[in-house]
């Protein structure tokens, strides 16, 4: 499996660490549903919006959709948005 980093290009999956579903970026406000945010998952069989850390490359936190059934990936984008 290869993932495409917006800064480094297509790289081997081994350069990346899977961080979690992109829903982790939606941290609730104080008093919100922290239990659900931390533990519950959509866990789809199909496209999953997720986060990868390019830790053996540029170090950026990246976001993109990957199909969990076929492993087909779309190019990743910077999770924090472009500056």
């Amino acid at each position: 499996m290869r993932l495409t980093c917006p800064l480094c290009g297509a790289r081997d999956r081994r350069e990346f660490t899977w961080i979690g579903a992109a829903s982790l970026l939606g941290r609730p406000a104080p008093g919100g549903d922290f239990v659900g945010w931390a533990h519950l998952r959509e866990n789809p069989a199909g496209p999953l919006d997720e986060l990868w850390l390019h830790n053996a490359g540029c170090g950026a936190l990246l976001r993109g959709a990957r199909d969990t059934v076929t492993h087909a990936t779309a190019p990743l984008t910077l999770a924090g948005g472009a500056r």
Binding site: G36, L40, E42, N43, P44, A45
Partner: peptide, 18 residues
């Protein structure tokens, strides 16, 4: 491993990743 998928069909989420 299909628990999340089946739970979705019953309308709830589980603390499970496959």
């Amino acid at each position: 491993g299909r628990s999340g998928q089946l739970a979705a069909r019953a309308g709830f989420r589980l603390p499970v990743e496959s």
